[in-house]
Nucleic acid binder design. Structure first.
Lengths: 252, 252
DNA sequence: TCGAAAAGATGACAATTATCATGAATTATT
DNA sequence: AATAATTCATGATAATTGTCATCTTTTCGA
């Protein structure tokens, strides 16, 4: 029964791909990504409006979607690739607050609060995103309570995650935080066929995720490698012994 | 003109106090605290429903409102006093994520996401809170988009603050974070007539706010005192030279 | 494909922060 | 008011983390 269901799902997706031309595929109503975010609570008509006003953009690795302090006139919905959301600290270092990938919506906080954004978004891999002007979002928010609640749920979830990050940052050692980052990257973005993490971050980005100096991150990566917890090849990193990492995270 | 306004505000509050009996005063419709939180977007009828189902509680300093992992059947609206919202780290230390005071609503994240709460709430001063069962909140959320948007705005604001905390925690030194805490306490809770912070936290709580060991916090407090930045009397702390603190925070 | 630029790696050292121990001061309890 | 229990304070020391310098490797553009 469950294998039948799985087949059925695959079949439907392929069917959609097969029978639609590209313009049709790119419409929000048919966007698979939507399953993962609040847009699923929109009605057909609302989605149509969103789709008609959206713009799809390709962003190259390293390019910025927006910068801290920008006024955002809409939100970005990630179709493909990963973006880092970071904030510049007064000491000149970037702190990466969050990584956003397929299905995630960026900039909604700023649009909802009608404030300048407090974060910068830079692509860490080639991306495809949809820019959705805020009008259609804000309008739906005030007309469709289901949508508002769905956005609220997402925001509540983000807030909980932020709490966890705060605790990790202040109570865990740099070593623990780096170990945690690798386990996170493995579980959320997966590994390639040779066992390396699919999402490759520079050592500097890793340092900025865990809030430490680049040299400290590099040193700890070397140490993990020596201990057989991970392997490296250029800037690629692969988890070899997740249990050892997990033990370290838990403080053994 | 501005002094007239001030007088007018005072007058109105006193008038309300004067003409209403206690039961009447305790109704949400008349609650002054409401001006500060999302409840202000509720209609008269909705407020009445909330008020009829709410329970007012007095909480003594040190008592818990709820514990991490509890299932909350409603939210707490703070009428008086201050509560710390904290999370236990795996190393056994408490991290204080936020201080909630007059007008703030606690537990809404958990109620909205329908999850167990990720934080504990313990009173750091004697408190008076209203417990509002979740039904009336959730119901209004799905019927009144203005209320949903108002809650959304609050949550968006909290999320931004959380981002700032993350950056502070990971990029600033313990000394800077403690300095920041004192400035924050001064600006948000004020000083008594002798220039001491109105909200008195134990050294341990201060350490848990900035995420450091209690001894480190104490040591830094002693240092600040020696340098004339603050004064102490028992566990009370007073800011003597805010500029020095500010310079330290900014990294000079 | 060569050479410059960027990113990664490591040593030496300094600064920051945590931990353990111990004593003084304050607060709570009987 | 006396005593117990917390909380505050400080020294000694160790562990962690940051900074600066230098070298190697990788990446990228002309």
């Amino acid at each position: 029964m469950s294998s039948f269901r799985y087949f059925y799902t695959i079949f439907r997706v392929e069917q959609i791909d097969y029978f639609m031309d590209e313009a049709e595929q790119n419409r929000c109503e048919n966007c698979i990504v939507r399953q993962f975010n609040s847009l699923r609570a929109m009605s057909k008509a609302e989605l149509k409006k969103v789709s008609d006003s959206k713009v799809t953009k390709k962003i190259k690795k390293g390019e910025a979607l927006f910068e801290e302090g920008d006024k955002l006139d809409g939100v970005f919905c990630v179709r493909e690739g990963v973006s880092k959301l970071s904030k510049l600290s007064s000491n000149g270092k970037d702190q990466i607050i969050k990584l956003a990938s397929k299905g995630e919506v960026m900039g909604q906080r700023s649009v909802i609060a009608e404030e300048y954004t407090n974060l910068s978004a830079v692509a860490v891999s080639d991306m495809e995103v949809c820019f959705i002007p805020k009008d259609s979002i804000v309008h739906t928010l005030s007309k469709n309570p289901d949508f508002a609640i769905e956005v609220l749920r997402h925001m509540a979830h983000d807030l909980k995650e932020a709490d966890d990050v705060i605790v990790n940052m202040s109570q865990k050692t740099v070593k623990q935080r780096i170990a945690e980052a690798f386990v996170y990257l493995k579980n959320n973005y997966g590994e390639d066929d040779q066992g390396f993490l699919k999402l490759t971050l520079s050592r500097e980005d890793i340092a900025n995720v865990v809030g430490t100096a680049t040299e400290s991150a590099i040193r700890i990566i070397s140490e993990f490698k020596k201990k057989g917890m991970i392997k490296t090849s250029g800037k690629k990193i692969g988890v070899l012994n997740e249990k050892l990492l997990q033990d370290l995270i838990e403080g053994f």
